[in-house]
Design a binder for these strands. Structure first.
Length: 271
DNA sequence: CGCCTTTGACCCGCGC
DNA sequence: GCGCGGGTCAAAGGCG
């Protein structure tokens, strides 16, 4: 009774193809959701860092000198900005760290240290290691009000590139392997981002991928995300990836990509 | 061995 | 002229 056998086969093939595409679309949508959440978290962290910078700079900087701030607080957030002109920077360091070393992308040679009248902490004098070809000097001294803050004053302008450019800037001696280090090519400064805190981890458990897309990630509070149980999260990831790989119509490579992405996120949560 | 830090001595500008 | 304070020099020692 198959008047149009070829047509029926064609319909089945199209249905098969449609289902395949729907599953692929679903997984891609899920991945997009994951990436969107990750992006919003990073964006929130950047905003928080910028607000903290502005607050500290307005509190500690006096007057019209350009100020750059480097954070090396217990959050271990730090970015190093090569100084190219006369300026002053404020550096937050551990109060028990008595060194007067400011990592700014350039290499310096210390040539003196003095205790000044207005400040009990000594002032260190540095000149650029490229001297006398480079005339830049800097002075580093702890802030009177807050000895956890280093104040570095720069005189002159470097006539050369920072030492170890292209992502090879000096690293903090406190740098540990668990931290992420990326290079901001625009600012020419490396930025070390602390591991994602559990309180701002990604939500992978509350709903299926299709449900997740209903939520606006940017509107979810980080506290809500922090309530997610790690084990549930892991189970969900395993189940979802297993369902993808068992499906003969699903691209194995895509499943592997999803698994890899989820694994990254899961390990980020553990840090 | 070369580079860097430390540190006491020295230099110099400024106010009295 | 003298004293004070900030800035620099340079010898000595440490470190890789």
């Amino acid at each position: 009774m198959d008047v149009f056998p070829s047509c029926k086969e064609k319909v089945e093939a199209l249905q098969f193809e449609l289902e395949h595409r729907q599953k692929e679309n679903e997984s891609l949508r899920f991945m997009l959701g994951v990436m969107t959440r990750r992006f919003s978290i990073l964006q929130a962290e950047i905003q928080e860092t910028e607000e903290h910078q502005q607050k500290t700079a307005s509190n500690l900087a006096d007057g019209d000198q350009a100020c750059h701030e480097i954070l090396d607080s217990n959050k271990r957030a730090r970015f190093e900005v090569p100084i190219t002109k006369a300026s002053r920077i404020l550096v937050r360091s551990h109060s028990n760290d008595k060194s007067l070393i400011v990592k700014d992308g350039y290499q310096w040679r210390k040539y003196g240290q003095k205790v000044t009248k207005d400040n009990p902490s000594p002032r260190a004098y540095f000149r650029c290691s490229m001297a006398p070809n480079c005339p830049v000097k800097k002075k580093v001294q702890r802030c009177v009000e807050d000895d956890s803050v280093l104040v570095a004053s720069y005189d002159g302008e470097h006539n050369h590139e920072p030492n170890g450019s292209h992502g090879q800037y000096l690293c903090s001696p406190h740098t540990s392997s668990s931290k992420i280090s990326i290079t901001n090519h625009v600012l020419k400064c490396p930025i070390e981002i602390p591991p994602l805190q559990p309180s701002i981890a990604l939500d992978l458990t509350l709903s299926s991928p299709s449900n997740q897309q209903k939520e606006n990630p940017s509107k979810r509070s980080m506290e809500d995300c922090g309530k997610i149980n790690n084990n549930c999260n892991k189970n969900y990831i395993e189940e979802y990836v297993a369902s993808l790989t068992k499906d003969p119509t699903f691209s194995v490579a895509l499943a592997a990509a999803v698994a890899s992405s989820m694994s990254d996120l899961s390990s980020s949560r553990m840090l």
